[in-house]
Nucleic acid binder design. Structure first.
Lengths: 205, 205
DNA sequence: GTCTATAAAGAGATAGAC
DNA sequence: GTCTATCTCTTTATAGAC
């Protein structure tokens, strides 16, 4: 029953639709997105859209499922054999790069979760929970070894998610406050997060 | 033309409506919210709702305007004459308490901003921008005096916003990963943020 | 001030020609 | 595979009785 990419032709059209859908879902949320808007962005008619994806929800699910791997990659890559501080620095860097490169994806998830995650609740309490707990165990090990300050590991992960995704999800707010261009903004963000997470705010003489 | 609270009777009904509207807007976003849902939550008919607020947008604007003061209070209270580290610690505490006490308000703003802030863009580039720049100047002064680590002050404020509001906006995700009850969750969050922001992750001692 | 009934528009999905 | 036309349901908003 798995009819994934029967022909290259079909796969290309599906990709075009999903790209358009990502634009619209990220900007308006699931409920605010319209098939008219997606069809227009994809350059095709509404019924033709529905020839590829039977319902609006099916498009949404296809997007969320298809992007989940990419989204969790930075945390998956946290290496238990690495040096703790440098591993976390690298994780922050990867996660912030994701926010810069894939802001639509970030806002797709943000829309979904802020509104109670009606369509990905099982993924959150399944795969996501398992991943966080696995990586938290690594952090706990590092703390026990005295190689990392004694913080709650899950909350540390939340803090890294929050601060990095903020630059995608709350982009309009950040840009309303700052005047810097995209590259400068993310450079300064990275520098600030590295100081904050690694060294803290206490002045170092 | 300012017909604010003509009678106590009217004011009470308006407050009841806005409380219901806050429930619904926070859960579903502007577009996802329906007058049916708000009317039901407020315990009155849809046309009666529209007797008090002519349109759905008017309710939304009334909420955003009415909550802005409360929302910015924690940052307003940052005291230039205080001790830098303790001021920031207290700010984080106030902001996290807001997220715990007013999660609906947090998600109301989150929904609006993630979707491009169509209805509060002028507030962001006006009042919010001015406030952040004023407080950033205080932080810069502290840094020049060597009383605070040299971080970008606006990005520091963003990091505090992101990490604290995360516990309201992404509550379902946090709860999917953790098993702790509300009080324990926020206690651990506060402890973690204090260590992170004040001391950093480098092991001490 | 509050309601029932309803108009009018929006939006998801289908029918059927090409 | 793609389209135009259309059905149907939802939702915002209004009319008008009480």
């Amino acid at each position: 029953m798995t009819n994934t990419e029967r022909s290259p032709r079909r796969a290309a059209t599906e990709a075009r639709i999903l790209d358009a859908a990502l634009d619209v879902f990220a900007d308006h949320g699931f409920r605010g997105a319209t098939l008219d808007g997606i069809a227009s962005a994809a350059g095709m008619s509404k019924p033709n859209l529905l020839y590829y994806f039977a319902t609006k929800e099916e498009m949404h699910v296809a997007l969320l499922d298809g992007l989940m791997d990419t989204w969790l990659d930075p945390l998956e890559a946290l290496d238990p054999t690495g040096e703790p501080i440098e591993e976390l620095r690298a994780y922050i860097r990867r996660k912030l790069a994701m926010a810069q490169r894939y802001p639509r994806e970030s806002r797709l998830f943000a829309n979904e979760i802020v509104q109670g995650a009606p369509r990905i609740a099982s993924m959150l309490s399944g795969r996501l929970r398992a991943l966080v707990q696995a990586k938290a165990a690594i952090l706990d090990e590092w703390i026990m070894q005295g190689r990392l300050a004694p913080v709650d590991p899950a909350h540390l992960i939340f803090a890294i998610w929050a601060t990095t995704q903020h630059y995608a999800d709350f982009d309009v707010q950040v840009c309303a406050v700052l005047d810097s261009d995209d590259d400068a903004r993310f450079d300064t963000a990275l520098a600030t997060l590295e100081i904050l997470f690694i060294d803290g705010l206490r002045p170092r003489g």
